Simulated scan of single mutants.
Amino acid sequence: MSESSEISALRREYVAAGLHREQMQADPMLQFEDWMQAALTAHPDDATSMTLATADAEGWPSARIVLLKRYDECGFCWFTDFRSEKGQQLAQNPKAELLFYWRGLERQVRIRGRVEQLPFADGETYFHQRPRGSQLSAAVSDQTQPIDHRITLEQRVAKLDDEYADQVVPCPETWGGYCLVPEHFEFWQGRENRLHDRFRYTLAADQWRLERLQP
Rank of each mutant, 00 (worst) to 15 (best):
residue 129 Q to K: 06
residue 129 Q to G: 08
residue 129 Q to F: 01
residue 129 Q to C: 04
residue 130 R to N: 10
residue 131 P to W: 01
residue 131 P to Q: 09
residue 133 G to D: 05
residue 133 G to S: 01
residue 133 G to K: 01
residue 135 Q to A: 08
residue 135 Q to E: 10
residue 135 Q to D: 03
residue 136 L to T: 01
residue 136 L to K: 08
residue 136 L to S: 06
residue 137 S to P: 08
residue 137 S to G: 10
residue 138 A to P: 05
residue 139 A to R: 12
residue 139 A to S: 12
residue 139 A to E: 00
residue 140 V to S: 06
residue 140 V to I: 02
residue 141 S to P: 03
residue 141 S to K: 06
residue 141 S to G: 08
residue 142 D to N: 14
residue 143 Q to V: 13
residue 143 Q to H: 14
residue 143 Q to I: 11
residue 143 Q to W: 09
residue 143 Q to T: 13
residue 144 T to V: 15
residue 144 T to Q: 15
residue 144 T to F: 15
residue 144 T to I: 15
residue 145 Q to E: 15
residue 145 Q to C: 12
residue 146 P to N: 07
residue 146 P to V: 01
residue 146 P to Q: 07
residue 146 P to Y: 09
residue 147 I to F: 15
residue 147 I to D: 05
residue 147 I to E: 10
residue 149 H to T: 13
residue 150 R to H: 10
residue 150 R to P: 03
residue 151 I to W: 07
residue 152 T to G: 01
residue 152 T to L: 11
residue 153 L to K: 03
residue 154 E to W: 08
residue 154 E to S: 02
residue 155 Q to I: 08
residue 155 Q to H: 12
residue 156 R to S: 02
residue 157 V to P: 00
residue 158 A to P: 05
residue 159 K to W: 03
residue 159 K to V: 06
residue 159 K to H: 13
residue 161 D to Q: 12
residue 162 D to A: 15
residue 162 D to F: 09
residue 162 D to M: 13
residue 163 E to Y: 05
residue 164 Y to S: 12
residue 165 A to D: 09
residue 165 A to C: 09
residue 166 D to N: 14
residue 167 Q to H: 13
residue 167 Q to E: 14
residue 168 V to N: 14
residue 169 V to P: 02
residue 169 V to S: 03
residue 170 P to V: 07
residue 170 P to T: 07
residue 170 P to Q: 00
residue 171 C to W: 06
residue 172 P to Y: 07
residue 173 E to S: 13
residue 174 T to G: 12
residue 174 T to D: 10
residue 176 G to S: 04
residue 176 G to T: 00
residue 177 G to Q: 09
residue 177 G to E: 07
residue 178 Y to M: 01
residue 178 Y to K: 05
residue 179 C to L: 00
residue 179 C to I: 11
residue 181 V to C: 12
residue 181 V to G: 04
residue 181 V to W: 05
residue 181 V to T: 12
residue 182 P to G: 09
residue 182 P to A: 13
residue 182 P to V: 06
residue 182 P to E: 05
residue 184 H to D: 11
residue 185 F to A: 06
residue 185 F to R: 08
residue 186 E to S: 06
residue 186 E to M: 08
residue 187 F to D: 13
residue 188 W to S: 13
